[in-house]
Nucleic acid binder design. Sequence first.
DNA 1: ATAGTTGATGATCAGGCGATAAACAATCAT
DNA 2: ATGATTGTTTATCGCCTGATCATCAACTAT
Lengths: 227, 227
Amino acid sequence: MKKVLPRRARAKQKRLSPEDRRREFVAKATEFFSEEGFDGGTRDLARRLGVTQPLLYRYFPSKDDLIKEVYRTVYLEPFDAGWEKLLTDRSQPLRERLQEFYQAYTDVIFTRKWLRIYFYAGLKGLDINRWYIGVVEDKILSRVVRECRHEAGLPEQGEPTAAEIEMAWVLQSGIFYYGVRKYIFESPVLEDKRQVIGDALDVFLTGFARVFATATGPRRAPAKAVG
Amino acid sequence: MKKVLPRRARAKQKRLSPEDRRREFVAKATEFFSEEGFDGGTRDLARRLGVTQPLLYRYFPSKDDLIKEVYRTVYLEPFDAGWEKLLTDRSQPLRERLQEFYQAYTDVIFTRKWLRIYFYAGLKGLDINRWYIGVVEDKILSRVVRECRHEAGLPEQGEPTAAEIEMAWVLQSGIFYYGVRKYIFESPVLEDKRQVIGDALDVFLTGFARVFATATGPRRAPAKAVG
DNA sequence: ATAGTTGATGATCAGGCGATAAACAATCAT
DNA sequence: ATGATTGTTTATCGCCTGATCATCAACTAT
């Protein structure tokens, strides 16, 4: 009689708890999808996990559900509450606060994984990107504007105008796209991130003060709120 | 005997020359792929063209060849030689030259179609994006830097340093990402593009002059060329 | 040891994909 | 009108995709 052998001499690995195993799947799926896009096949994904494809469906009811969990981990995990305090702590010079903040922020999002997932999701037209952009405006840019007003000796009352937020976006995007060029397009860049951020901040801060200081009266069209 | 009817009462449209028909296919394929991504199916594409799927293979040997032609039209068509002259015509004030240039440039690339194709291609890791980034540096940014040096009364000899190019990238990206937010993420933005560009230029020009004027000596690390 | 529960697999399904070949329709030259 | 040529469709191939189900293995509690 033929003895039934174990089908595969699996490396003896401790059996993880279901939640941990699930998390492991999500983590590796994130890497996988960030490379292949969300059209990557479940078979390739399973091979990467070292398991067979049907097993995925024991842990996730469908591919879409798995993808949703990938979004969640990528977008929600990294947002650090400490950043807000960092931005508004006026015991430190603004220039240094911003340098520290953008240093920390880009340490988190300047990875091939994060940036690629971000654009794959964006091209799919998911709300999650619009939501994220709203969070950036609320938690980062509006605070930057307020601190810049303070620094420039401008009146601080009133919400940031749409034009001011746009200017903060120019700074934000300028720094952000440095990461895009480096990690998505893999184009050669000036490697010293600290310097790039520092120079961007220097230009922005001196420029912002001078430009918006003379902008109490309407320079061009008054900055209308956008619906 | 059953008379053979024309299979479909096709709207009487003049038969186009093969080249024109081909161009028509490429144009509509560009729209299609910009929405669906390059994983969009040839059947869906054909339906959009109002023809059957195998017909595509009469005009293009494979789907990949069709896609390559899409790239060509998107990337190569729009680059306008006039832009270079616009940037370097010192009979005009720099501020106005840059305003005009970015106005014209963004008139071309700020479309859902262009931007989406750009990122789909970028995520695929195609050389064409790196090539495009190189073109931007050569044709736009290095000229911007030179003109800024001139404007700020700095010595003009020597190639732009890597740090200077990076600063021009911050401006470029800041404006570029305004279009990304609007046309890819479809996020609400300040609608007055002219003002956004204008403000970005004001901040950049005043900032650049002040920051790099004091930068003749090494401020932080000297800007080394990147390999 | 044995029964019960959870983890993982092999085989398979229906549907979609890119691509091909042969048949038919429309146009053009003579 | 006739034949040649080009444009278009129908039918189909092999392959890959997400998903399902029955089966077997591994671990746990008794």
